[in-house]
Simulated scan of single mutants.
Amino acid sequence: MTYDNLKQEVIEYSREIGIDKIGFASADVFSTLKERLKIQASLGYQSGFEKGSIEERTEPERLLPEAKSIISIAMAYPSRMKNAPRGTRKERRGIFCRASWGKDYHHILRERLEKLSQFLKDKNPDVLTRIMVDTGELSDRAVAERAGIGFSGKNCSIITPEFGSYVYLGEMITNIPFPPDQPVEDSCGDCHICVDACPTGALVQGGQLNARRCIAFLTQTKDFLPDEFRGKIGNRLYGCDTCQQVCPKNKGKDVHLHPEMEPEPENVKPKLIPLLKLSNREFRERFGSMSGSWRGKKPIQRNAILALAHYKDKSAVNDLIAMMNEDPRPVIRGTAAWALGKIGGNKAEEAIKEAMQKETDMQVIQEMKKGLDLLKKS
């Protein structure tokens, strides 16, 4: 069997197992990406979540010495929710980004790639593979771009002709020298809507992201959120869709091909106040199957507090006072104090002053002072 024929069989099998797009790329060094990553590192634009060294992230042979090609896959996820619940003044809601709707995509794509790997090994026991989905060393986007899945847009997402940028990506390095596919032509043109719309200016320019300013990154951090971003989070609990929502290439793109990717409305748009009271077990039972749960409940609860402050939700005051006084986590106590100051009112002011008398953590005390300053301005 020729490699061309085997490639066609792999393509046909990928359709049978529910892969929406598949492409093939060489395992050559990603030279352009390597230089870009060096610049990103020198500017301090990396998130810190990246795995591996720059060399490991751009030289496939470091990950699989026998590497000859890389198979890239894409699976499309929904951009719209059926029966989406609406928040009200009495019951404010937060939102998880679309990439966290449904079952954790890492598991979904890994399962498909493992089936592809087994398919190849059944054809030839000498086949070697290495699978990655998002958390591996290689850049899913760089591989997908080279493999012709789509082009890399100014919003730093892979944009496909069929599904826009609403796709999950994964790849498999192999020792089979598959004929490579051709990259898709970049068609962003002069459009820079996403750059202009980014809430924090994280898109420094088209195709260049300062991950440290990206809301998708910020919502996953566990420390106090820097002051300049607290008013930008809105009601986002995990991730951010702004640069995808405004993209003209995504207009009208909404596919529902995989039942496991369909959102549970009450989980992806949850009521905010009940989130404050979740135990670890309750959090895992409710959100554990979603990719947005990977950092645990602390960032989600901190973001829920910030969302309540965003709405200036006075019905949350009692719960926030309780968190400020009783929660063992300084980040939560301090953020609750800041939120009380943002919401305002005599009760909030008295509670902050009283709590400050017994607080021992200096960072929390600093947040309490910020809360009192906000009260003075209100």
Rank of each mutant, 00 (worst) to 15 (best):
E350P: 02
V204M: 04
R15G: 05
Q363Y: 09
I158W: 01
L63P: 00
L372C: 06
K21M: 15
K358V: 05
D186I: 01
A202W: 11
N318H: 11
F151S: 05
M81C: 09
M1T: 12
P270I: 09
S72T: 06
R93E: 10
I332M: 08
A67K: 07
Q40D: 14
P259Q: 13
L138F: 06
G288A: 09
L308Q: 07
R130T: 11
L340W: 02
L340Q: 05
R286A: 11
P183C: 13
K312F: 13
V10P: 00
N325I: 01
V167I: 15
I158D: 05
P226L: 07
E55Y: 09
R15I: 04
R281A: 07
C198N: 05
R112C: 01
R57M: 05
L33A: 08
C247K: 11
Q46V: 14
A348L: 05
E264W: 01
V255M: 06
I273L: 12
L116F: 05
P177A: 11
H107M: 06
G164F: 13
E171R: 08
D361S: 14
I159D: 13
F224L: 13
S69P: 08
D223N: 15
F178H: 05
F224H: 10
L237T: 04
L275G: 08
D122G: 10
T335Q: 05
M75G: 01
R302H: 04
D4C: 01
E282D: 13
H258R: 06
D28T: 13
I233L: 14
R93H: 09
S157L: 10
S165M: 02
E56K: 10
M368S: 12
Q244L: 15
A99M: 10
L320D: 02
C191I: 07
G201R: 00
H256C: 11
E350N: 15
K103W: 07
G344Q: 02
S72W: 09
E359M: 06
R302F: 04
L203G: 08
A348R: 03
